[in-house]
C-alpha cells in the first residue's frame, strides 16, 4: 500500500514540477510591415470620449447530483476596471466622388456637390494605466493579459456602437459644408448658389430640416 501511495505522490509531484501551464506554447513575434494606403478623406468632426470599462466574473463549480445539474458558486470576487480615453472622428471619403458628383450648371453659376455619407473611425485610444484596478479575493486568480485584451476589444466595439446614438454624423455633415463652402466661394460661386447634399439624403428622399437650418445659419 505504501508503495502505491509513493508512486501516486511521485506522479503528482512530477505533474507539479513539469507544470501544467496552458501558455506553454507561444507563437513567434510577428510584427507586420507598415501598410500604406492612398486615400482622400476629409475629417470634419472629432469627439473625445472617456469610458470606464468594468468587468466581473462569477465562478461556479458545475456537476450533477441525483441526475440533477447543480451549480455551486465559488465565493470571492474578481473584478477589473479600466478607464479609456478615445478619439473618434467622422470623415467623408472623397475617393468615392467622381465628376458626376460635382455638377455645375450651364451658366457656370450654380454648383451642386453630392457627398457620400460620413463614416466613423476610432482614430486613437489610450488606457489610463494609473487608474486601472483589479479587485481579487484570495482564492481568485489575477486577470491574464489575454483576458484583458479580449475585454478591451469588447470595450472598443462598445465605444463605436455608442457613437451611433450621438450627433457625430450630423455634425460631420454640417462641418463638411463649412469646409467646402469657402473653397467653392474662392472658386467663384456665390454662397446662395452652393448646394451640398449627401447620398443617403437623396436615397431616402429627405433633406434633414435640422441640417438645412444649420447650413442657413452658417451662410448668414
Amino acid at each position: 500500500m505504501k508503495r502505491t501511495l509513493l508512486i501516486i505522490t511521485t506522479i503528482l509531484l512530477g505533474v507539479l514540477l513539469t507544470g501544467c501551464s496552458k501558455n506553454a506554447q507561444k507563437s513567434p513575434i510577428e510584427v507586420a510591415m507598415p501598410m500604406i494606403n492612398n486615400c482622400s478623406k476629409l475629417h470634419t468632426a472629432q469627439y473625445n470620449v472617456h469610458k470606464i470599462l468594468t468587468y466581473e466574473d462569477m465562478t461556479a463549480i458545475e456537476g450533477s447530483l441525483f441526475f440533477e445539474k447543480i451549480s455551486i458558486p465559488i465565493p470571492g470576487e474578481r473584478k477589473l476596471v479600466i478607464p479609456i480615453d478615445a478619439t473618434i472622428q467622422a470623415y467623408i471619403d472623397f475617393s468615392q466622388i467622381t465628376k458626376e458628383n460635382i455638377n455645375v450648371d450651364s451658366e457656370g453659376k450654380k454648383v451642386t456637390i453630392t457627398l457620400p455619407n460620413p463614416q466613423i473611425v476610432l482614430s486613437s485610444a489610450k488606457i489610463d494605466y494609473k487608474n486601472e484596478k483589479q479587485y481579487l479575493s484570495w482564492n481568485r486568480s489575477k486577470f491574464s493579459n489575454e483576458e484583458k485584451e479580449n475585454f478591451l476589444r469588447q470595450g472598443r466595439a462598445s465605444i463605436l456602437a455608442s457613437m451611433a446614438n450621438s450627433d457625430i454624423i450630423d455634425r460631420s455633415r454640417v462641418n463638411a459644408f463649412k469646409t467646402l463652402q469657402p473653397i467653392l466661394v474662392a472658386a467663384g460661386f456665390s454662397p446662395e448658389n452652393i448646394t451640398v447634399t449627401f447620398s443617403d439624403e437623396i436615397e431616402k428622399n429627405k433633406h434633414s430640416e435640422g441640417i438645412i437650418k444649420q447650413l442657413s445659419i452658417i451662410e448668414d
Binding site: S40, Y47, V49, R171, N175
Partner: peptide, 14 residues
C-alpha cells in the same frame, strides 16, 4: 460613454 469634448476639424487625409 462620456463625451469629454467636441472639436470641429477640417483635416484632409491623403
Amino acid at each position: 460613454t462620456c463625451i469629454t469634448s467636441i472639436k470641429e476639424i477640417a483635416e484632409w487625409e491623403f
